[in-house]
């Protein structure tokens, strides 16, 4: 954690603004890849709070992402034509609406996280993983059946509000919140819950509460990432948020080394870039991707970027 986290956040936000200012000069392809990386970093870092720091294995992150994506897309699709008419608003107006939509998406995802978390966090390990997977799939099937949200076809024509500024800014905010939270006095409770639940309860920590807090915060940022994703791809379908997506995020967390924010960020970058780099080999790229995944897991089971395995884990 940097010595002055608030300054670091401010610097990062300024940097995001600067990148946005000069975004015309970059190759649009690189900007798209960077946006994809940013969204995945938000997802991975927020899941890391649940999986890595609190030790609760969740496989439903894509479900919360879809809640955020749908809700925020619904907000902009509803308000943008009513407020701005045909020709769109100014950059500030659109930005304000987008921020509102993202927050609406994040809050609804957090609420979904609360609904899912309260009953399921009584379970542990594999069982929790399965229940969250189940909830993720139920969320997906429900979206598939809600006609006002496009049903199986999904939502189309979402305005392209996601710019590189929003992505980088939320990446910075996510990392800031998660890092400051786990390094605060309150946040030690997450680590204690992971390391030894029974001992933590014995010293008076309410571990269930910590688990739910971690789950809700994780879901909130997943919802934000979903909103960014929806306004970046401009179209969302329920099948884009199935459990393969959840697994993709989990892989980033585990490959980065559980409970290691820097490692998780690097893993998210690597795993987003890998399919892009492998693009020249076209049809074989996903074969290679999965093959590399197995090899990496066999070669470095403690996570690719985790260099202090052994002494940190009890």
């Amino acid at each position: 954690m940097p010595p002055k986290p608030h300054l670091a956040l401010l610097a990062a936000l300024l940097f995001a603004f600067g990148v946005q200012h000069f975004s015309d000069q970059f190759n649009p392809y690189y900007l798209d890849v960077l946006t994809g990386i940013g969204i995945n970093v938000i997802l991975a870092v927020s899941l890391n709070l649940v999986n890595g720091y609190t030790g609760q294995f969740s496989l439903g992150h894509a479900g919360f992402m879809s809640v955020g994506a749908y809700l925020s897309a619904a907000v902009t699709l509803y308000f943008a034509p009513r407020w701005f008419g045909e020709d769109g608003g100014t950059a500030w107006q659109e930005g304000g609406l987008f921020l509102m939509a993202l927050l609406a998406g994040g809050l609804s995802a957090a609420f979904a996280g609360l609904l899912v978390g309260v009953p399921s966090l009584r379970l542990k390990g594999d069982y929790l993983a399965l229940v969250t997977l189940g909830f993720g799939e139920i969320i997906r099937v429900t979206f598939q059946n809600v006609e006002s949200l496009g049903g199986a076809l999904g939502l189309n024509g979402i305005p392209p509000y996601t710019t590189i500024f929003w992505v980088l800014a939320f990446v910075a905010i996510t990392i800031f919140v998660v890092t400051c939270l786990v390094n605060s006095t309150y946040g030690r409770g997450f680590l204690a819950t992971r390391d030894d639940e029974i001992a933590s309860e014995a010293v008076g920590l309410n571990t269930t509460r910590y688990k739910i807090v971690a789950f809700v915060i994780g879901a909130f940022f997943a919802g934000i990432a979903g909103g960014l994703y929806g306004h970046f791809k401009l179209t969302i379908t329920p099948t884009g948020f199935d459990f393969t997506k959840s697994i993709e995020i989990v892989v980033m967390v585990i490959l980065g080394g559980m409970g290691n924010t820097l490692g998780v960020i690097l893993a998210a970058i690597l795993l987003t870039l890998l399919p892009e780099v492998l693009r020249p080999v076209a049809e074989y790229r996903m074969v290679l991707y999965s093959f590399l995944l197995i090899v990496l897991m066999l070669a470095r089971p403690q996570g690719l970027f985790n260099f202090k395995f052994g002494k940190s884990k009890a």
Binding site: D126, I254, L255, M258, M286, S290, L293, I294, M297, L298
Partner: peptide, 15 residues
């Protein structure tokens, strides 16, 4: 740890 085997299994599945 079981989680690593789980991820490897997912890798095999994707492969």
């Amino acid at each position: 740890p079981t989680l690593n085997v789980l991820i490897t299994a997912i890798g095999v599945s994707l492969l």
